[in-house]
């Protein structure tokens, strides 16, 4: 379900879960375009040699997933602010799920606040954050 205007949004609304593409090929494409190329993001063995559990999805990519999730829910939303805390690594080739819930609405300004998490299949929160977005009245 998508929303088009602020009056479509209710306090406590849960956004549709978004399962982003964390496969190696997509992460490699991302880090190339972001100029963040490095084996810790694109090579599981190289990442393990650094003591990591596997190749990492960059934090900035997880943050991009959060913004994409908001746009999929509200295509006309103008994102004003996204704050993310990297709690634990998101691992390449492991599924993750982007979850969001509306925690504040200001109908006068058209702004909503959304709490966001990135969780893995075990239900562990790897990244969490908050966003503010403006929707048409």
């Amino acid at each position: 379900m998508t929303v088009n205007r602020i009056t479509d949004v209710e306090f406590g609304d849960t956004l549709p879960v978004f399962d982003p593409d964390t496969r190696l090929a997509n992460v490699a494409r991302f880090v190339k375009t972001a100029h963040w190329n490095g084996p810790r993001f694109t090579d599981h063995e190289a990442a393990r040699a650094e003591g990591l559990p596997g190749a990492l999805v960059p934090g900035i990519m997880s943050q991009g997933f959060l913004a994409a999730m908001i746009h999929r829910w509200a295509p006309k939303a103008e994102i004003l602010y996204v704050d993310t805390v990297f709690r634990a690594p998101v691992i390449v080739d492991q599924p993750c799920h982007i979850n969001g819930v509306v925690t504040d609405i200001d109908e006068a300004t058209g702004e909503v606040e959304i709490d966001l998490t990135v969780t893995n299949d075990a239900g562990e929160t790897r990244v969490f954050g908050t966003a503010r977005a403006k929707l048409p009245n």
């Binding site: 978004f18 593409d21 494409r29 375009t33 990519m61 913004a67 994409a68 999730m69 746009h71």
Partner: peptide, 23 residues
Amino acid sequence: SCGEVSPCFTDPSDPDFQAPPTL
């Protein structure tokens, strides 16, 4: 690659083409 689908972020020929907000 982040999952954006709107042409304003994914299609350089879109008249409102712009960087995604977290770039």
